[in-house]
Design a protein around this nucleic acid. Sequence first.
RNA 1: GGUCCCAUAGCUCAACUGGAUAGAGCAACUGCCUUCUAAGCAGUAGGUUACAGGUUCGAUUCCUGUUGGGAUCACCA
Length: 590
Amino acid sequence: MSFIEQNLIQNIQAATEALYHKKVEKIILQATNANFEGSHTLVTFGLAKELGQSPESLAQAIGQYLVEKSGIVTQFNVAKGFLNLTINDQVWLQVFNQMRTDKNFGYAPQNGQRVMVEYSSPNTNKPLHLGHLRNIFLGWSMAKILEANGYEVSKTCIVNDRGIHICKSMLAYQKLGEGETPETAGIKGDHLVGKYYVEFDKLHKSQIKPEQTNEKNPATPALQEAEQLLIQWEKGDSATVDLWKKMNGWVYAGFNETYQKVGVSFDKTYYESDTYLLGKDIVQEGLDKGVFYRAEDTSVWIDLTAEKLDKKILLRSNGTSVYMTQDLGTADLKYADYQLDKSIYVVGNEQDYHFKVLFKILDKLGRSYAPGLYHLSYGMVELPEGKMKSREGTVVDADDLLAEMLKIAQEKTDELGKTDDFTPEELQKLYHIIGTGAIKYFLLKVDPKKKMLFNPQESVDFQGDAAPFIQYNFARINSILRKAKQLNVSSQVIDYQAYTQLHSAENHLLQLLASLPAKIKEAAEGYAPSVIAQYAYEVAKGYSKFFAECSIFNAETEAAKSFRVALSAMTAQVIQKAMDLLGIDVPEKM
RNA sequence: GGUCCCAUAGCUCAACUGGAUAGAGCAACUGCCUUCUAAGCAGUAGGUUACAGGUUCGAUUCCUGUUGGGAUCACCA
């Protein structure tokens, strides 16, 4: 809480005591609506009831008191029951001075807690698509935000690298591959494997007999062969394992290329081929504790109907484990590896039910870490015609989209012609910063919980509420700072006393900058990078307005000039920090 | 059918967790570059917050119902 809020709350409490001889415990302030004068607002309806006063007269009385006694409130107005307070500009300048001298402004100190963010978690049978990008950017940003809130964060990825779906692409490759490799085919490894996954689907569908069309899982020869391959793999058959290793290697190389392109990485990768047998001992533990039960056919279940959930299978009658069993095992493994206080799973909302059940089971088993588990459930990215389906080819491929972003960035940059002095390398770097920034911002600005729409026809915005606009303001500021250096305008020392009247655009911007710490906290508590994205845009907009309305180098006084340079520098710093939390770079020039 | 989620301007999204006259961007229309980067600024227009009730000083937000959309309910992962 800022000292302004502390001061106001204390003085409001003092006011109610002095005026009505009653101490009020909780005072809640909110930001003043833009249509009214002031920055802080006290909503008096609740207080009025408690004190037996009318909201209007109470607001008047407290307002009067604050102007006289607080030392920071210069004026107030009352609309209905809302008491709007205007804070002295000198106080705002103090706030400004405080934030610019704080190297860690916005960041919370270490809190000694460990948190894991698991994200991406791809299958190794097809390339990444737009939905994965939302997942990846959310995970990365969430990790950054938690770090900024003082957590020790580890980023992990659980690769789903085994199972029937992997065997499908292996089988198709065996049949049709003719020794093709990413090199000979000239195709990125993950795309090559994805191609054979599609081939398998074609083969499988062509083999479905007329009388099987209504079955949910028609047993075609192709499917049976793939199942056979899975059995071979589980036996450790060397030829099968070698093929599996080779194809997975291609996929990893492809994924890594994409990860690198978008600038994300992991501290730890778990492979399901290593962990898929985990969790069976937990099944035994659950049986011993009486949390699970064994059915007549020897399969193991948990009955969660009392919790308004269903019965869930945990071990098949043939003794093999299911998805849930593995997740129980990896939860224990993660905790054993990192002693986590919190563990965040970034997984799509189609798995809401799965995680509800998973967390409930771990809780029932008495795991101490259960309360710290959180499913960061995000909505699907949909196309105008509906959901993306990889088998039907209606997906927006991640690599294709990134390439298109770079292309648009290049076209737009070249069109504006402001980069004539750039070297080819600098230009490539700039296109990359702008292109990837645009897609990241596009995916992160929306509340994670909500599904969102991507229209390939309109693609991603580079204008208005978009990353390039924010980056543009950062570049603009750097231009200003370069010029300030040239002109020897010092912003180190500011004569605040000589600057008594802030321009409304300055005041607005300053208040925005001051709210960075609150926003970083809010983003972590709500698990919502969108809070930061919206904030970054507002700051950029605030600067743009200031830039248009206040001349910096032709300022009326020296004090104003140096303050404006300092305000610009501070804005650049805040923009950079906010964008960094989103995983978005900012350019010095553009 | 059970459970869960969603519905806000023509389009894409906000709305400080129950607050004021519901805000931005895109698209449309008006102005503004011989002065610090116009990827910009200022303005006009655009809304019965799906619908019907309820709770209260006050509802886009909470409750009930209706309609429409999505997810999930596998001895798949």
